[in-house]
Simulated assay, not measured.
Amino acid sequence: MTKIIARTGHRTKKLGGYNEEIFIRLVALSKASLLKMQATEVISGMALGFDQALAIAAIELQIPLIAAVPFKGQDELWSEQDKECYESILFQTKAIVYVDKTREYSTEHSGYNPQKMHKRNQYIVDHCDEVLALYDSSDGGTGNCIKYAESLGKPVLNVWKSWVKYRGF
């Protein structure tokens, strides 16, 4: 039975910063969650933070990964190290979908635009069975993504309490 898991979650500044220790913990949390959810495929939006940790977890668990990239050049403003990690993940995916180029999710905007992130989130929810969330209940894109998933009746597993408990905030 196929079980496609998508993710929504905060970027690094809400997770305690961006360093190797935090990223390793995010990957470990993602692995445990994917195993608990019995994932057979994963969709990642490829943003820094939880998105990429989930992608690495899927790769390490040998679960097929689809990269739902909001637009080509998503990584333009990132550090060289972050760009290398991004490229490495993309190289190991089952498929790469540039969401802004798909008929149903296309936008008229070029380059970065918040609407493209919203469309990417819609895409991942529309194409999954369940959503894995790392969400602290604050306003923003993660909350909007969860509301969208719930409006479609998609189960959402929010692992924020586990993150806080084992991260030591």
Score class of each variant (00 low, 15 high):
residue 3 K to F: 03
residue 3 K to P: 04
residue 4 I to A: 07
residue 5 I to S: 09
residue 13 K to W: 11
residue 17 G to F: 06
residue 22 I to T: 14
residue 25 R to Q: 12
residue 33 S to F: 10
residue 34 L to V: 10
residue 35 L to W: 05
residue 39 A to K: 10
residue 40 T to Q: 00
residue 40 T to M: 01
residue 44 S to T: 08
residue 48 L to V: 14
residue 55 A to W: 01
residue 58 A to T: 10
residue 63 I to D: 09
residue 66 I to Y: 03
residue 68 A to P: 09
residue 69 V to Q: 06
residue 71 F to G: 04
residue 72 K to L: 11
residue 77 L to N: 15
residue 80 E to D: 14
residue 81 Q to F: 07
residue 84 E to Q: 08
residue 90 L to V: 00
residue 94 K to Y: 02
residue 95 A to C: 01
residue 96 I to Q: 09
residue 97 V to K: 09
residue 99 V to M: 09
residue 104 E to S: 09
residue 105 Y to A: 05
residue 110 S to P: 00
residue 110 S to F: 12
residue 111 G to P: 06
residue 112 Y to E: 07
residue 115 Q to M: 15
residue 119 K to V: 03
residue 120 R to S: 08
residue 121 N to Q: 07
residue 122 Q to Y: 12
residue 125 V to P: 03
residue 126 D to I: 06
residue 126 D to S: 07
residue 131 V to A: 08
residue 133 A to G: 12
residue 140 G to H: 11
residue 141 G to I: 06
residue 143 G to C: 04
residue 143 G to H: 07
residue 147 K to H: 04
residue 150 E to Q: 15
residue 150 E to C: 04
residue 152 L to S: 04
residue 153 G to P: 08
residue 157 L to M: 13
residue 158 N to R: 11
residue 160 W to N: 08
residue 167 R to K: 04
residue 168 G to C: 02
residue 169 F to C: 01
